[in-house]
Design a protein around this nucleic acid. Structure first.
Length: 425
RNA sequence: GUGGGUGUAGUUCAGUGGUAGAGCGCUAGUUUGUGGCACUAGAAGUCGUGGGUUCAAAUCCCAUCAUCCACCCCA
């Protein structure tokens, strides 16, 4: 039986890695420009962290966590998202006694136990940003601006930013009651899932795809109808910032995010794809989370973007064309086995000079060595025969133009290292 | 968790009861020290796995696993 990777995992192969490296470096540069610093937290945490942090009415905690017992009988969970871990670390190391707001970013694998499909995996990667300690609505705006600039830096097209306000512990309970009052008379028409949501988390009914549920909920009260003054003003200010920086957005009054900790601002971004797995990033403000996890009363806001979906969308939008940066490769060929020592010497010498050089290790004939050099995309080939060994003059062949020129060793190195190398063209 | 499609060479797939195939890729060769093109040859598959029907199964039946797609949900 062939051994395969576990369900829902995928390998990023050598030929695609440049895509990931390109994305990583673009995003890293950009968030650092906004003065965010990297945090690396463990890939697994104590299960309680997510129960408290993410919330036990969410689907993530309900059915998607990778939870198991370790040998010390502790309940461990592979992180399903990044915020909880960063906040835990922030509190544990008392970072709130340092500079506020704490501005962090993270990058790495996340785990959710759900059936895989296009753009959805059990191990997937997120790049996320968190800002802790500021309740300023303009920070929300700046965070949104950053997120959109990240997508733009990658060249993504057809971007759609949707925002909403989901209220706070002051106004949300009031809204919840009003919503439940309204839904009470329609309870029997709701789908089974929404009937169970009715008690636990009626806001989520907005997410339901069932037509009847949609019809019912359309006419019901929206969160934004019942915002308290604080939330209302906050939302207005966020939109004000977005207008100031000329960022396009849409208010989606029906948007409710899947995590319990969100307060006030919530948002989601899609690019192109309609329907399934269109969301490439999302986030929101979470003003109660730090306290909930045992820290001081500090507000927070953050978002995460899904790398697999970014790669998928960039492939669809053909944004990787020409992004593969190839270095100049030099292949040292030998006419016969007599010249092998000389190729070893030369390759080693070139590498000492930071030149990407390699030689045959398959005992191939000269012709086959050229085929190989061609296949791996070598830019130059130097052929070593008895003539070269005795004369110490080497012929450099440009594989694109087929032109050949001869040099002594020191000139050869200068040519291959040199910036104004006319022979390159 | 629910529903549907698909599992044959590295890969894309053909093969519907009777000797396991093709394109691409890979390796080598087409004599003299030179690649891309062409030609030739070669390696490579317990036909996903287990059971059943049959003289005979890649092919029919059952189960199972994997994978893909959709729903749920999300990134």
């Amino acid at each position: 039986m062939k051994i395969t990777g576990p369900k829902g995992t995928h390998d990023i192969l050598y030929k695609n890695i440049y895509k990931w490296q390109f994305i990583e470096s673009q995003l890293k540069n950009l968030v650092e420009l906004y003065d965010y610093q990297e945090m690396r937290t463990p890939i697994f945490e104590n299960t309680d962290l997510f129960l408290r942090g993410v919330g036990d009415t969410t689907d993530i905690v309900d059915k998607e966590m990778y939870t198991f017992k370790d040998k010390g009988d502790r309940s461990i969970t592979l992180r399903p998202e990044g915020t909880a871990g960063v906040v835990r670390s922030f509190i544990e190391h008392s970072c709130y006694n340092e500079v506020l707001p704490g501005k962090f970013y993270y990058y790495g694998p996340m785990f959710r136990y759900s059936r895989p499909q296009a753009g959805r995996y059990r191990q997937f990667h997120q790049f996320g940003v968190e800002a802790l300690g500021s309740a300023d609505p303009f920070l929300d705006g700046e965070v949104l601006e950053l997120m959109m600039n990240m997508f733009k830096a990658l060249g993504l097209k057809q971007l759609k930013l949707e925002i909403n306000s989901v209220g706070c512990p002051v106004c949300r309970p009031i809204h919840k009651e009003k919503l439940k009052d309204y839904l009470k008379s329609h309870y029997d028409q709701l789908c089974p899932t929404c009937q169970s949501r009715y008690e636990k988390n009626p806001l989520r009914i907005f997410d339901c795809k069932s037509l009847t549920c949609q019809e019912i909920i359309q006419k019901g009260p929206y969160v934004t109808d019942n915002l308290c003054d604080d939330c209302e003003n906050h939302f207005i200010k966020v939109k004000e910032y977005l207008d100031m920086v000329e960022l396009e957005y849409e208010v989606n009054k029906k948007m409710v995010r899947g995590l319990d900790y969100y307060t006030k601002t919530a948002f989601e971004v899609s690019a192109g794809r309609e329907g399934s797995q269109s969301s490439i990033g999302g986030g929101g403000r979470y003003d109660g989370l730090v306290e909930e996890l045992g820290g001081p009363e500090l507000s927070g806001i953050g978002f995460a973007i899904g790398l697999e979906r970014i790669v998928m969308t960039m492939d669809e939008q053909m944004l990787f064309e020409g992004k593969f940066e190839s270095v100049n490769k030099v292949f040292i060929a030998s006419v016969s086995s007599n010249e092998i020592p000389e190729t070893v010497r030369l390759v080693s010498l070139l590498r000492k000079n930071d030149i990407h050089a390699l030689r045959d290790t398959m005992n191939r004939k000269l012709k086959a060595q050229f085929k190989y050099a061609n296949k791996i995309g070598a830019d130059y080939v130097i052929t070593i025969g008895d003539e070269e060994v005795s004369s110490k003059i080497y012929t450099l062949k440009n594989m694109k133009t087929s032109k050949e020129e001869s040099y002594v060793e020191s000139d050869l190195i200068n040519i291959l290292k040199g910036e104004n190398n006319e022979f390159k063209k």
